[in-house]
Design a protein around this nucleic acid. Sequence first.
DNA 1: AAGTCGGGGCG
DNA 2: CGCCCAGACTT
Length: 304
Amino acid sequence: MRYRLRVPDSALPRLPDAGIDAVIGWFARSARSLPWREDDATPWGILVSEIMLQQTPVVRVLPRWRQWMAQWPTPADLAEAPTAEVLRAWDRLGYPRRALRLQECARAIVREHAGRVPGTQEELRALPGIGEYTAAAVAAFAFGRRAAVADTNIRRVLVRTIAGEQRPAPSYTARERAMTQATLPDETERSVLWNQAVMELGALVCTARSPQCGLCPVRAHCAWDRAGRPEAPADAPRRTQRFEGTDRQMRGRIMAALRSADQVPVPLLLALDPEDPARVRRCLGTLLADGLAMRDGDLVHLPR
DNA sequence: AAGTCGGGGCG
DNA sequence: CGCCCAGACTT
């Protein structure tokens, strides 16, 4: 892929500067006010918000984030908290392993970075629960650095405006990386504004289901709109009922039971699905393996 | 590259 | 009832 480096910048697929200006201007007028975007937000608060927002909508994160930051305002606070309390505070945000990793992340920050969130993508990427997207987002939004941020919103906007397609591929492809890199403004301050602005555009206007193209600041530059907004070919239909999905549901039910009591007898958990106690056992086994539950004889409880 | 991992709301 | 949501991690 080294040959790509010889391609002149002007040939790379990118949104024109006029489009970038339009999106940034729209953001200045239309951005939601979110607490982790306020001036008083700390890098740790921004990091916490990014973890909570992984696969979880903003409206559901808001109340949890406020409570969380009031209870554990610094990495050191979360590092010292009882894990059971952490999991209860996570409540029903989903994917509770994120809560476990967030506490591990806090402990790593205390241990390896003297309690302060590191600012480079490389250091961030090395922390538990922080992947490519979150490392770039924290570097950009918490530290004002130039980073190629590519969440589901940004990917959708770029694929539509530049490639003229309705939705991005399931995985973040090399072609999409090229679009993200080529469009990212060279100047640092402008790159940070662009990342925030295009993400917000994807969340509010260029949405997955019913995009509000009539309100879109880059409609004039949008290849998808120009092409008549063609629909992507439908995915292959689900072969059977999603049976694995029910395992996730059962894990959620077990976690809910554990959050509601100090300890729960195994027979009580098995009663969660009288039709299929083997499934409950299997799910309990994966929760124990994940460190989300502990077993003490016949009693199950959250990790203390 | 594909599977797994929650939970809720919307079309 | 299927899809979507500021993804990460394992295999």
